[in-house]
């Protein structure tokens, strides 16, 4: 369950990164549609955070330590919304670049989360 969500989040994060990277290339700031995309990714991140905590509460344990698992869950929940606010303040192509970078960071966090949880299809 959580593995499928991790993969889905990784893929959507990369999609968001290329979308905003394209906006950077075209010298455009983030538009409403980009913010809807960021909202979707953020929502997935929050769902992942809740499911992760529920799994822990049900007694399942990640391969690595619980503290690291929770830290990565929180980090992946925060990365895109923080970048979204930064791009609101930066109405240039660099606002788009910031969101693209945060989305790449999120994708990397998801790869790590997959390893931390164990990737055994729990």
């Amino acid at each position: 369950m959580i593995d499928a969500l991790t993969v889905a989040l990784g893929v959507t994060a990369l999609a968001l990164a290329s979308w905003c990277g394209f906006a950077t290339y075209r010298d455009q700031p983030t538009k409403d549609w980009h913010f809807i995309g960021m909202a979707v990714v953020t929502l997935l991140g929050l769902v992942q955070l809740v499911i992760g905590i529920v799994q822990l509460a049900r007694g399942q344990r990640p391969d690595e330590s619980v503290a690291i698992f929770v830290a990565y869950l929180v980090g992946s929940g925060l990365a895109v919304p923080i970048a979204a606010f930064m791009s609101l303040a930066e109405r240039t192509r660099w606002g788009s670049a910031t969101v693209a970078a945060a989305a790449v960071v999120l994708a990397v966090l998801e790869v790590r989360l997959y390893d931390i949880w164990g990737g055994t299809g729990a």
């Binding site: 503290a67 690291i68 980090g75 930066e90 660099w94 970078a101 945060a102």
Partner: peptide
């Protein structure tokens, strides 16, 4: 922290959190 600097702020912020949380743990 504006223009390209905004991207640097994000990356430095990410690395602050990454290095700090890692070392504290």
């Amino acid at each position: 922290g504006q223009g390209p600097g905004r991207l640097l702020v994000l990356l430095y912020g990410v690395f602050t959190v990454a290095a700090a949380s890692r070392s504290i743990y």
